[in-house]
Computed example of a mutant assay.
Amino acid sequence: MSSTRSGLPPRERSHKKSTKKNSRKKKKKASGFKIFLRILLTLMIVSALGVGMYVGYLSVTLDQVIEETGTDEKVAPEQSAKVKPLTMLLLGTDYRPETKTHLTDVMMVIAMNPETKSATVVSLPRDTLLELKGYKANKLNHFYPNFLVQEKKTGITAKYEMKTMMSKYFDLNIDYVTVLNFQGFRDIVDSLGGVDINVDADMCYRDRADNTNINLKKGQQHLSGEEALGYVRYRKSNCSPRTKASDDFDRNRRQNEVLHALIDQAKSLDGVLGAGKVIQSVGKNMETDLESKQMKNIISAYWNISKENVAFVPVTGQWKNPYVYINATEFENAKQALKDELAGIRPNADDAEETEPAKAGN
């Protein structure tokens, strides 16, 4: 991938040169800084916070993960994340060893500005109907697995296809794309010793096919990785007594809630002790077109970012089975928020309040 970043990047081919180094990298990705889930910026923030507190061992661990996960492309000084605002598409897939599926249940576009030490994160509902010239209309979360199938015929990676499509959709050049799966989310939360969440409702759902067992009670809870995954994924109940169902907007809100909690947890003692495992968990469950050097630049630029400077902008809409028809005004405002972030324009406190979600189905 070119480091000049002028317009859309050149096509990224799925095959790699058959050098020993590249062969090793490919095997690492196949076997294996936010969710984790909907979720790289925050994860990199989490990892970076740990690095700042526990430099020695973590620096070595982080360097190893970065070298194995990032690409070996060069980064021109003027393209460094330390001096240039960047955008990233973050995909959280439902892949777990139990399912081996790749639906993108989390879809975020992140804009980062090194001068303001801030970021804006726009999230879209997974069931969003995407209608875009050149693409067959479909649910947003279906495109990535479809592109994965096409990789074998076209030789163009699904990551590149997603980045190209979402750049057109947002009318914004997206610099990078990162894919993180649900297994990584579970591992990250567990590496931090769990996460404290005020669960907003009773939740009960079981699925023997993939061993899902969500059984949460309303109130303050300390959740394990598996429980936190259930909390952000919960859609409907099949248990007795039945619990209230959730929609895409509830899940987006919960994901943002967990992300903020993870940042707090990373600053705790458990976070310090678990930071090495967090870094390794990210590396094992993440694929990205970020250059290794750029990953280090991002950590250097944003390691001390505060959660107050991470603005979450969820886009809502109206559910009409089987799609979510997103609110056009909210979407335009979200696109402008990303452009403002890149320009160094920060929202006023009143403007930063999240819009009350519209009613939606399951």
Results as ranks from 00 to 15, higher is better:
L216F: 08
A275S: 14
R235S: 03
Y176T: 09
L43F: 02
E226M: 11
F185N: 04
L124N: 09
K26N: 10
L86Y: 05
D270G: 11
P125E: 11
A76L: 15
A352T: 12
N141S: 10
S2W: 01
L49F: 02
N22D: 11
K244M: 07
N173A: 06
S281I: 08
K16E: 08
T178R: 06
N141W: 15
W319R: 14
T87A: 12
D105H: 09
I35P: 07
D72G: 01
P10A: 14
N198G: 03
I39H: 11
N348K: 11
Q255V: 08
M162I: 09
E227H: 10
N113I: 09
K277N: 14
A337L: 10
N213W: 08
K284Y: 06
R346W: 10
V258L: 15
A209R: 13
I299N: 04
N362C: 01
Q64R: 08
L148R: 15
R13N: 12
D105V: 12
D171H: 00
K27N: 05
H222P: 07
N297Q: 07
E73K: 04
G344T: 13
I305T: 10
D196K: 13
L338Y: 03
Q255N: 03
L269C: 00
V272E: 00
D175M: 01
T19K: 01
G193L: 00
K74F: 07
T61M: 07
I299Q: 07
K82N: 04
Y160P: 05
P347F: 13
L89C: 08
S14L: 02
S268C: 01
D270T: 04
V258P: 04
E356L: 14
L273F: 11
Y323W: 14
Q318F: 10
V149K: 14
